[in-house]
Amino acid sequence: MTNKEFIRDDGRKFDEIRPMKAKVGVVDNADGSAMFQFGKTIAIAAVYGPKKMHPQHAQNPKKGTLRCAYNMLSFSVEDRIRPGPSRRSTEISKITQWALEPVLMIDQFPNQVIDVHINILQASASTRCAGINAAIMALAHAGIPMKNIVSSISVGKIDKQLVVDVNKYEDSIFDEGEGATDIPFTFTGDGKISHLQLDGKISPEQFKEALELAKNGAKKIYEVQKKALKESLGEK
Protein backbone atom coordinates (compact mmCIF):
# COMPACT_ATOMS: atom_id res chain seq x y z
CA MET A 1 0.00 0.00 0.00
CA THR A 2 2.91 2.32 0.67
CA ASN A 3 4.57 3.54 -2.50
CA LYS A 4 8.28 3.68 -1.76
CA GLU A 5 8.93 5.98 -4.75
CA PHE A 6 6.46 8.59 -3.53
CA ILE A 7 7.80 12.17 -3.51
CA ARG A 8 6.16 14.62 -1.13
CA ASP A 9 5.21 18.25 -1.71
CA ASP A 10 8.44 19.42 -0.08
CA GLY A 11 10.56 16.93 -2.06
CA ARG A 12 11.08 14.42 0.75
CA LYS A 13 10.83 10.64 0.41
CA PHE A 14 8.02 8.90 2.32
CA ASP A 15 10.29 7.88 5.20
CA GLU A 16 12.46 10.97 5.28
CA ILE A 17 12.39 13.19 8.36
CA ARG A 18 12.85 16.96 7.86
CA PRO A 19 16.37 18.19 8.69
CA MET A 20 16.71 17.89 12.46
CA LYS A 21 18.65 20.09 14.82
CA ALA A 22 19.12 19.50 18.50
CA LYS A 23 20.96 21.63 21.01
CA VAL A 24 21.37 21.32 24.74
CA GLY A 25 21.67 24.34 27.04
CA VAL A 26 19.65 27.10 25.43
CA VAL A 27 18.28 28.79 28.57
CA ASP A 28 20.99 29.78 30.99
CA ASN A 29 18.77 30.29 34.04
CA ALA A 30 17.19 26.84 33.82
CA ASP A 31 18.47 23.70 35.55
CA GLY A 32 18.33 22.04 32.15
CA SER A 33 17.25 23.15 28.70
CA ALA A 34 17.24 22.08 25.08
CA MET A 35 16.03 22.95 21.61
CA PHE A 36 14.70 20.50 19.04
CA GLN A 37 13.87 21.32 15.46
CA PHE A 38 12.10 19.43 12.64
CA GLY A 39 12.55 21.67 9.57
CA LYS A 40 10.49 24.78 10.28
CA THR A 41 9.10 23.49 13.58
CA ILE A 42 11.18 24.72 16.52
CA ALA A 43 10.59 23.83 20.17
CA ILE A 44 12.57 24.87 23.23
CA ALA A 45 12.20 23.30 26.65
CA ALA A 46 13.47 24.34 30.05
CA VAL A 47 13.47 22.35 33.29
CA TYR A 48 13.30 23.87 36.76
CA GLY A 49 13.69 21.47 39.66
CA PRO A 50 13.45 19.10 41.37
CA LYS A 51 12.29 21.65 43.91
CA LYS A 52 9.94 21.55 46.86
CA MET A 53 6.31 21.36 45.78
CA HIS A 54 4.14 24.31 46.74
CA PRO A 55 1.42 24.38 47.94
CA GLN A 56 2.27 21.74 50.46
CA HIS A 57 -1.04 19.88 50.09
CA ALA A 58 -0.09 19.14 46.48
CA GLN A 59 2.97 17.19 47.61
CA ASN A 60 3.07 13.48 46.92
CA PRO A 61 5.01 11.62 49.61
CA LYS A 62 5.38 8.53 47.38
CA LYS A 63 6.97 10.08 44.32
CA GLY A 64 7.85 13.35 42.69
CA THR A 65 5.49 15.24 40.42
CA LEU A 66 6.26 16.02 36.81
CA ARG A 67 4.51 19.17 35.65
CA CYS A 68 4.61 20.04 31.96
CA ALA A 69 3.40 23.19 30.26
CA TYR A 70 3.20 23.30 26.48
CA ASN A 71 2.72 26.73 24.99
CA MET A 72 2.70 28.09 21.46
CA LEU A 73 3.96 31.62 21.02
CA SER A 74 1.24 33.82 19.53
CA PHE A 75 3.25 34.50 16.37
CA SER A 76 4.48 30.93 15.86
CA VAL A 77 1.70 30.26 13.32
CA GLU A 78 0.35 32.12 10.30
CA ASP A 79 -2.89 33.21 11.98
CA ARG A 80 -1.93 34.74 15.33
CA ILE A 81 -3.19 32.63 18.23
CA ARG A 82 -4.43 34.19 21.44
CA PRO A 83 -1.68 34.03 24.05
CA GLY A 84 -2.28 31.95 27.15
CA PRO A 85 -3.55 28.45 27.83
CA SER A 86 -6.22 26.84 25.65
CA ARG A 87 -8.02 23.50 25.74
CA ARG A 88 -5.56 22.25 23.13
CA SER A 89 -2.46 23.32 25.04
CA THR A 90 -3.86 21.92 28.31
CA GLU A 91 -4.30 18.53 26.65
CA ILE A 92 -0.88 18.53 24.99
CA SER A 93 0.76 19.48 28.30
CA LYS A 94 -0.76 16.41 29.94
CA ILE A 95 0.03 14.17 26.97
CA THR A 96 3.64 15.35 27.19
CA GLN A 97 3.79 14.53 30.88
CA TRP A 98 2.44 11.03 30.18
CA ALA A 99 4.93 10.57 27.33
CA LEU A 100 7.94 11.50 29.50
CA GLU A 101 7.10 10.05 32.88
CA PRO A 102 7.58 6.31 32.14
CA VAL A 103 11.35 6.72 31.69
CA LEU A 104 11.97 9.12 34.59
CA MET A 105 12.95 7.83 38.02
CA ILE A 106 10.55 10.24 39.57
CA ASP A 107 10.03 8.08 42.65
CA GLN A 108 13.43 9.36 43.80
CA PHE A 109 11.97 12.80 44.52
CA PRO A 110 9.09 12.50 47.00
CA ASN A 111 7.33 15.77 47.84
CA GLN A 112 9.15 17.53 45.02
CA VAL A 113 8.13 18.85 41.64
CA ILE A 114 9.94 19.04 38.34
CA ASP A 115 8.65 21.77 36.05
CA VAL A 116 9.08 21.40 32.31
CA HIS A 117 8.22 24.44 30.21
CA ILE A 118 7.90 23.87 26.49
CA ASN A 119 7.54 26.73 24.06
CA ILE A 120 6.97 26.48 20.35
CA LEU A 121 8.85 29.32 18.67
CA GLN A 122 7.86 28.44 15.14
CA ALA A 123 5.25 25.91 14.07
CA SER A 124 4.88 23.81 10.96
CA ALA A 125 3.11 20.67 12.27
CA SER A 126 4.49 17.98 14.62
CA THR A 127 4.93 20.59 17.37
CA ARG A 128 4.02 18.22 20.20
CA CYS A 129 6.63 15.73 18.95
CA ALA A 130 9.32 18.42 18.77
CA GLY A 131 8.29 19.58 22.24
CA ILE A 132 8.60 16.10 23.73
CA ASN A 133 11.98 15.57 22.05
CA ALA A 134 13.27 18.85 23.46
CA ALA A 135 11.77 18.17 26.90
CA ILE A 136 13.49 14.83 27.47
CA MET A 137 16.83 16.36 26.46
CA ALA A 138 16.27 19.24 28.87
CA LEU A 139 15.45 16.75 31.64
CA ALA A 140 18.64 14.84 30.91
CA HIS A 141 20.58 18.10 30.89
CA ALA A 142 19.10 18.93 34.30
CA GLY A 143 20.52 15.65 35.58
CA ILE A 144 17.16 14.02 36.37
CA PRO A 145 17.86 10.28 36.66
CA MET A 146 16.18 8.36 33.86
CA LYS A 147 16.16 4.80 32.58
CA ASN A 148 16.19 5.90 28.98
CA ILE A 149 15.20 8.79 26.78
CA VAL A 150 12.09 9.06 24.61
CA SER A 151 11.82 10.03 20.96
CA SER A 152 8.67 11.37 19.39
CA ILE A 153 7.63 11.33 15.75
CA SER A 154 4.47 11.74 13.72
CA VAL A 155 3.37 9.45 10.92
CA GLY A 156 0.84 10.73 8.42
CA LYS A 157 -1.39 9.09 5.86
CA ILE A 158 -1.89 11.26 2.80
CA ASP A 159 -4.78 9.71 0.87
CA LYS A 160 -3.40 6.13 0.87
CA GLN A 161 0.28 6.98 1.26
CA LEU A 162 2.11 6.72 4.58
CA VAL A 163 4.72 9.40 5.35
CA VAL A 164 6.83 10.20 8.42
CA ASP A 165 7.20 13.57 10.13
CA VAL A 166 4.20 15.38 8.65
CA ASN A 167 4.59 19.02 7.62
CA LYS A 168 2.01 21.81 7.64
CA TYR A 169 0.66 20.93 4.18
CA GLU A 170 0.23 17.25 5.04
CA ASP A 171 -1.28 18.03 8.43
CA SER A 172 -3.87 20.67 7.68
CA ILE A 173 -4.09 21.53 4.00
CA PHE A 174 -4.11 18.21 2.12
CA ASP A 175 -7.67 17.06 1.46
CA GLU A 176 -7.87 14.58 -1.40
CA GLY A 177 -9.01 10.97 -1.63
CA GLU A 178 -9.06 9.53 1.87
CA GLY A 179 -7.82 12.82 3.32
CA ALA A 180 -5.05 13.28 5.85
CA THR A 181 -4.43 11.21 8.97
CA ASP A 182 -1.99 12.31 11.65
CA ILE A 183 -0.54 9.83 14.16
CA PRO A 184 1.94 11.20 16.71
CA PHE A 185 3.90 8.49 18.55
CA THR A 186 6.46 8.58 21.34
CA PHE A 187 8.78 5.62 21.89
CA THR A 188 11.05 4.89 24.81
CA GLY A 189 14.64 4.01 23.88
CA ASP A 190 13.77 0.31 24.25
CA GLY A 191 10.92 0.54 21.74
CA LYS A 192 7.85 0.77 24.00
CA ILE A 193 5.06 3.24 23.30
CA SER A 194 4.56 6.00 25.86
CA HIS A 195 2.33 8.26 23.78
CA LEU A 196 -0.05 7.69 20.91
CA GLN A 197 -2.78 9.76 19.33
CA LEU A 198 -4.59 9.54 16.01
CA ASP A 199 -6.81 11.78 13.91
CA GLY A 200 -8.14 10.69 10.57
CA LYS A 201 -9.05 7.40 8.97
CA ILE A 202 -6.97 4.22 8.76
CA SER A 203 -7.45 0.45 8.78
CA PRO A 204 -5.86 -1.59 11.60
CA GLU A 205 -3.61 -3.32 9.03
CA GLN A 206 -2.23 -0.07 7.67
CA PHE A 207 -1.91 1.28 11.20
CA LYS A 208 0.50 -1.58 11.92
CA GLU A 209 2.61 -0.44 8.94
CA ALA A 210 2.53 3.11 10.31
CA LEU A 211 3.72 1.81 13.66
CA GLU A 212 6.78 0.17 12.04
CA LEU A 213 7.60 3.36 10.13
CA ALA A 214 7.33 5.38 13.33
CA LYS A 215 9.57 2.96 15.19
CA ASN A 216 12.29 3.29 12.57
CA GLY A 217 11.93 7.07 12.47
CA ALA A 218 12.18 7.29 16.25
CA LYS A 219 15.54 5.51 16.10
CA LYS A 220 16.91 8.28 13.86
CA ILE A 221 15.65 10.94 16.27
CA TYR A 222 17.19 9.04 19.18
CA GLU A 223 20.59 9.28 17.52
CA VAL A 224 20.23 13.04 17.01
CA GLN A 225 19.24 13.53 20.65
CA LYS A 226 22.06 11.31 21.90
CA LYS A 227 24.63 13.17 19.83
CA ALA A 228 23.47 16.57 21.13
CA LEU A 229 23.54 15.36 24.73
CA LYS A 230 27.06 13.98 24.31
CA GLU A 231 28.24 17.21 22.70
CA SER A 232 26.94 19.16 25.69
CA LEU A 233 29.27 17.08 27.86
CA GLY A 234 32.16 17.85 25.56
CA GLU A 235 32.21 14.28 24.22
CA LYS A 236 32.35 13.35 20.57
Binding site: P102, K192, I193
Partner: peptide, 27 residues
Protein backbone atom coordinates in the same frame (compact mmCIF):
# COMPACT_ATOMS: atom_id res chain seq x y z
CA UNK B 1 -13.23 -1.71 11.30
CA UNK B 2 -11.76 1.63 10.17
CA UNK B 3 -9.96 3.61 12.88
CA UNK B 4 -10.55 7.36 12.94
CA UNK B 5 -9.19 8.55 16.28
CA UNK B 6 -6.93 7.37 19.09
CA UNK B 7 -5.73 8.68 22.40
CA UNK B 8 -3.41 6.98 24.84
CA UNK B 9 -3.76 8.12 28.42
CA UNK B 10 -1.84 7.70 31.68
CA UNK B 11 1.79 7.02 32.37
CA UNK B 12 2.54 3.35 31.70
CA UNK B 13 4.01 2.26 28.38
CA UNK B 14 2.48 -0.15 25.87
CA UNK B 15 4.63 -2.60 23.96
CA UNK B 16 4.25 -2.94 20.20
CA UNK B 17 2.84 -6.47 20.73
CA UNK B 18 0.25 -5.19 23.19
CA UNK B 19 -0.80 -2.48 20.78
CA UNK B 20 -1.16 -5.04 17.99
CA UNK B 21 -3.32 -7.22 20.25
CA UNK B 22 -5.65 -4.28 20.90
CA UNK B 23 -5.82 -3.44 17.18
CA UNK B 24 -6.97 -6.99 16.47
CA UNK B 25 -9.87 -6.52 18.91
CA UNK B 26 -11.13 -3.19 17.59
CA UNK B 27 -13.59 -4.50 15.02
Amino acid sequence: GIISSMQKGETKVLSVEELNTILDKVH
